[in-house]
Simulated assay, not measured.
Amino acid sequence: MSGEGGITSLVLHEGDAVLLGVFGELDAFTGPELCKVVTGCLAQRPARLVMDVSGVSFCDASGLTALLKAREAAVQSGTCLVLAGVQPALQRILAITHLDTVFGLRPQTGPTPHTGPAAA
């Protein structure tokens, strides 16, 4: 478990997927930490990276940028990135910015054999 930079993350492995739990506020201060954690996850070359954001209590424009950087890194690695456990506040931000169509979204958490649309 990592807690640097004001955001906490927990990485679990299940088959060919990595589950990344993210907790706290996602903003200009914590976005770079999230990007470091995602880079570490992608270095393992998983088929899927399921980012459980159910513990994200706040997300601003910088947080959205961090999520987009994570998606771009996943695409470059050939990994499908899925956001799971998206809470109503974050869902609203993603819908307003039309990023809900960019990310694969799942209401539940945890990797499954079929994670929906690829992040490519």
Results as ranks from 00 to 15, higher is better:
30 T>C: 07
65 T>C: 12
66 A>W: 01
70 A>Q: 02
25 E>Q: 12
58 F>G: 08
18 V>T: 13
98 H>V: 10
113 P>M: 12
13 H>Q: 12
6 G>Q: 07
65 T>M: 10
20 L>P: 00
4 E>Q: 14
89 A>L: 05
28 A>M: 07
97 T>N: 07
108 Q>T: 12
96 I>Y: 11
57 S>D: 06
117 P>Q: 12
95 A>T: 09
38 V>A: 01
109 T>P: 04
61 A>M: 15
2 S>N: 12
90 L>C: 02
99 L>V: 09
18 V>D: 02
1 M>Y: 15
2 S>T: 13
1 M>N: 15
42 L>H: 04
99 L>I: 12
21 G>W: 01
51 M>S: 05
75 V>L: 09
98 H>N: 11
81 L>A: 01
49 L>W: 08
103 F>Q: 03
38 V>R: 00
17 A>V: 09
9 S>T: 14
63 G>V: 00
100 D>F: 09
110 G>W: 07
13 H>L: 13
55 G>I: 11
97 T>P: 06
19 L>A: 13
11 V>M: 11
112 T>H: 11
70 A>Y: 02
98 H>F: 09
77 S>Y: 01
8 T>D: 08
45 R>D: 14
91 Q>A: 12
74 A>Y: 10
81 L>Y: 00
17 A>H: 07
93 I>D: 03
64 L>S: 10
70 A>S: 11
1 M>S: 15
120 A>D: 10
103 F>K: 03
16 D>W: 12
25 E>N: 09
28 A>V: 06
66 A>Y: 01
21 G>R: 03
81 L>S: 00
120 A>F: 12
1 M>F: 15
74 A>C: 13
91 Q>G: 10
79 T>R: 00
29 F>S: 09
53 V>I: 15
15 G>W: 10
54 S>V: 13
99 L>R: 05
73 A>H: 03
81 L>H: 00
100 D>R: 01
92 R>T: 12
111 P>N: 11
60 D>F: 06
3 G>N: 14
9 S>R: 05
74 A>W: 07
41 C>R: 01
53 V>P: 01
97 T>A: 10
71 R>L: 08
